[in-house]
Design a protein around this nucleic acid. Sequence first.
DNA 1: GGTTGACAACCAAGCGCTTGCTTGTTTTTA
DNA 2: TAAAAACAAGCAAGCGCTTGGTTGTCAACC
Lengths: 203, 203
Amino acid sequence: MSKPQKKTDAIPAPIGAISPAKARILTAAIDLFYEKGYERTTVRDIADKAGILSGSLFHHFKSKQDILYTAMAMTTQAMGEGALKAVEGITDPVAQLKALVLVELASIHRKDGHAAYVLVDEWRSLDPEHREAVLALRDNSYERCWTEALEGCAKKGLLKNTPSLARQLIRGSLAWTRNWYRKGGPLTLEALADEVVGTFLTL
Amino acid sequence: MSKPQKKTDAIPAPIGAISPAKARILTAAIDLFYEKGYERTTVRDIADKAGILSGSLFHHFKSKQDILYTAMAMTTQAMGEGALKAVEGITDPVAQLKALVLVELASIHRKDGHAAYVLVDEWRSLDPEHREAVLALRDNSYERCWTEALEGCAKKGLLKNTPSLARQLIRGSLAWTRNWYRKGGPLTLEALADEVVGTFLTL
DNA sequence: GGTTGACAACCAAGCGCTTGCTTGTTTTTA
DNA sequence: TAAAAACAAGCAAGCGCTTGGTTGTCAACC
């Protein structure tokens, strides 16, 4: 018994099963982060919204930072699965791209349960170690889908930029929609997705 | 003299002359906001960097929020002037657009004295009233340049989207460069600007 | 089937610290 | 010599988080 070392506690734990209580807290936290940002959101705010006292939060999460990390990691994982499902069965890279753009837009504007905007707005609030962990998680599935679609387009000569540059430009365009796009207006998400795809491809 | 009303104190004051001391504080604050964001930056941080004690800040600014507002308003005004100067004498709308893209990129990555990134990152930290004031300031000159250039391109049939949609997509692409673009790499800001213009126009 | 113990979830209270900001005084500047 | 600028000290409030005790739940045991 020279080295105890039961658990690798130094490196952030993987995202396993989430208890109902944890899920409730995460939902509340994500809503508040969306409205006010991480820093302006207090643990008391989160607890209030989740219907418990602030101290009880720390029975489920070891810190406020842990809540953010879990939210981002969970969302990343969910988006990876969503992206995989979106391109499933599609072989045309243009159609793949269109599907991926729509998934990302829908996530940002909360058409589903995800919460992609935390992955847009809160990078700076996430500790460097956690940041790397989330990035690794993202590159593993979500970005892989994008790369595949974009490289497919490039091979057909449809892409104006290199795939990696195109990815960053598109990501920026989509992320910024958070600051101006409103559902219910004349422009639907689908139409917006078409516009974006049409912009970055030479069709 | 039925109404005193010496100064419209309710609505944020306009940006007049900035004293040297104020300018020093603002520079320090902008640096820190850039590194850590508004919320994580304390008034003591700002004072330290400016070479004074924290209490002395409030001789120059009435609140921390006032520092942010002044920084954003000042930056907005400077960018308006920068944009005007950039398109000065240029009649070709494509060349205008290229110049404007470069100005915005340079500001975001602090190649000049401006600090456009606060206009990207810190909107949520700015009080609603101040926010409107800055937006009005922006639309007054800076956005006017963009609208003119984009409408010029549209008239020539070079634009893929409507000018207003193109503006938002471009703005997003440029803003997001903050999260991936690093100076000193193989891609210069000028080359990046060319890529962006080439992407959004049908040349 | 009633008692018991173990455990997770939560409450109640508050600790130690940091925050933005204020006040009264001293120094610097013009 | 008076205004502007900076200091020195600290307040009140709010922050993340800890602690110790109270519930509710459910399987194990006689």
